[in-house]
Amino acid sequence: METVIKVENLTRRFGDFVAVDHINFEVQSGEVIGYLGPNGSGKTTTIRMLLGLLKPSNGKATVLGYDVFKQSEEIRERVGYMSQKFAIYDDLTTLENLTFYGGVYGINDKARIQQTLELVGLKGHEHTLTRDMSTGWRQRLSLGIALVHEPKLLFLDEPTSGVDPTARRAFWDLIYQLAEGGVTILVTTHYMDEAEYCERVAVMRDGKLLAMDTPTNLKKSIITGDVWEVYANPLEQGLEILATLDGVERVGLAGDHLRVISSRVDKESMQSVLSANGIRVEKIERGEPTLEDVFLSLAR
């Protein structure tokens, strides 16, 4: 396996503000990486450095073997970038958009344009004006534009924001098809639905890379306590009482019940303390840790 991204002590300051603070990681070819973090945690700054658009203040990074400092043009020729707010020309057709952006990359090969259309499932819609297409289809076109020059590495910035699960599933099938063909993919997202699809997930906060591992391992290593689903009434008083219990790491409202993460409190003691305070307990069940639990415990 070949190392596609190698980041060593990568740092970027804006004045006194450290946007990216000595981060280290490696990505191998064909991996699908989820890159998570609250707004302002340094995700986009990292990607901009990896694209060679922004110079690091310290540290170094290589992308596809090229130095992001000195060889940014080589990198940009070989990577694809799809941003959430990508400019598609609304008054052009699918084919016209793809041909235009192909031209920007110096791709004038009609067969390649057709191949890309087919790959993203827009064959038969070449002549549809993009303003008449659904969000899901527009997203496929954006992906097509990012893929037209056959990049070996693809950066996707919140690619499926606002897209329904069916379209998202189709989109991810395509991502895995690309990964099978050896394309490496790095995705930023705010949605845990989506992060669950990734092979490895990185979590950033305040410019630091807090963790990077498979979803399964992250759940195991970060959520060491037990997860409980507590159905009780009234809910809010229940929340306040459980929050003060020694050994409870987090309590949150989860719709019609409470979600508790705790290493030292068992079912019986929750039951008795709630009952003692006049809270009616319907049931307490074991729950499964989620990536959202991981994110919330790292990001706070």
């Binding site: 998570l36 609250p38 919330l296």
Partner: peptide, 26 residues
């Protein structure tokens, strides 16, 4: 109507805590 599109998970968690509080408060 799709109130949390493009909002990070910590903020979404806060937002949902508010919504659930709103309906569960007497």
């Amino acid at each position: 109507d799709e109130p949390t599109t493009g909002v990070d998970p910590v903020t979404r968690q806060d937002f949902w805590q508010l919504v659930i509080k709103l309906v569960s408060q007497p």
